[in-house]
Design a protein around this nucleic acid. Structure first.
Length: 128
RNA sequence: GUAGCAGGCCACCUUAUCGCUCCGGCCGUUCGGCCGGGGAGGAAAGUCCGGACACCAUAGUGCAGCAUAGCGGGUAACGCCCGUCGUUCCGAACAGCGUUCGGAAAAGGACCAGUGCAACAGAAAGCAAGUACAGUUCGGCUGUAGUGAAACCAGGUAAACUCUAUGCGGUGAAACGUCAUGUAAAUCGGUGUUUGAGGGCGGCACGUCCGAAUCGAAGGGUAGGCGGUUAGAGCCUUUGGGCAAUCAAAGGUCGAGAUAAAUGAUAAGGGGCGACCGUAUAUCGGUCGCAACAGAAUCCGGCUUAUGGCCUGCUUUUUUU
RNA sequence: CGGGAUGUGGCGCAGUCCGGUAGCGCACUCGGCUGGGGGCCGAGUGGUCGCAGGUUCAAAUCCUGUCAUCCCGA
């Protein structure tokens, strides 16, 4: 069961409307501007150890094209940096990345913020 | 060269590394792996019209309501498109009324069916009353003045109500079918079982069909999978009919199917456009910047709006010869 | 995907149906009452009526298009 370290396939995506609702109500969060990560301990019968979703508020970005682009950048950044989480925890989680900025970012910026937010997440959860 | 109009085309490309999704094949125990192939638009947008399709009665009648408006054609259909007539505006020709020619614009039925409206000004904007002056056959009539967008004379206005003609049944893929999961055939109230409650998805009346339960309150459960779902009024080429929109025939071709929602990220190189610099213009070289509008969600035909570049034709204007 | 509603001075609203004067409250400015502040009284400034066309003699109002904001519906 050796997963490719850089993939991000369908099974790792957060899809269920119900669990997203739960995330918003019960979830904890760490944030490093412009990314906010909401997380919750996941069901044990979940297919992948960690599932993740991304979202960009329509209020900040009216155009569907830029919303899509930011979501793609977020997914890409998570895909390239998720080893940070996999290598440091054995627990199961559900993630939701929110983009809080008001302007369209570069990939470089997103990538840096993603690394920071993930290390902060590891600090918070593994320290206890 | 500049500006405008009309028509057509494209929507940066290639390579490398990593990644997403669908289809087919092989391997394999769930779950994946490997190989091959497909993967956003001209507007996918706004949701403004028209359809297909699905369910409700094979979708019925009248009223109400809504939409459209010269005439003819095209179309599955349209409020769309094409042609034509009239109207208005602009330009030119003739000395002028006006006519002719060329171009452009536009929601272009009917105020002799009825009702309403017209600020200010003005005597007066209908159910009528009446100013001044002049002329007079003196009965009262005629003309002029003045106000105003419009006036002893009837007009104007329907993107005012309305009338006429034509069309429109309703609800939309969250339609609809099916499988799975799950609870509660629980509680309270109303109406009713052939003397017919209630329902058949906007209103009223009728008709018709189903019909023994049904409606409301508060509450409980599930909010997952599959089908519908992508081959269609499809696209391309040729020939023929037609002024044209478009139609017919023959041949060829298959071009996304996601679902918190795929089609991406990074790097390099090459083309495109713009600015600046070098040189005597072009050409060429260098540097920098830009690359638009925008993302399928059942599917088509239009309209409207946003927007980068190239090509062709016509018109206007400028410079040089 | 499908339905609606609203854009009017700095702010909150009326006027739109049935076309001719853009008005109300708060705020702001000036003056008066007071030793000063507050409060009250009086006067005043301030509006492309979201934007663009059209109908009309005349448009915030009628018609068409467009932009923005907000609210519903499994």
């Amino acid at each position: 069961m050796s997963k490719p370290a850089l993939g991000f396939s369908k099974n790792e995506k957060l899809k269920s409307r119900k669990s997203i609702e739960r995330l918003f109500v019960e979830g904890n969060s760490v944030s490093k501007y412009p990314i906010k990560l909401m997380y919750i301990t996941a069901d044990p019968d979940q297919q992948a150890p960690i599932v993740a979703g991304v979202t960009v508020p329509k209020r900040n970005f009216k155009s569907a094209v830029t919303r899509n682009r930011i979501k793609r950048l977020l997914r890409e950044a998570y895909r390239l940096n998720k080893a940070l989480v996999f290598n440091n925890t054995e627990r199961r989680f559900a993630f939701l990345f929110l983009y809080l900025g008001k302007e369209e970012p570069t990939f470089e910026r997103i990538s840096e913020a993603m690394k920071k937010v993930l290390t902060r997440f590891i600090d918070e959860t593994e320290r206890r």
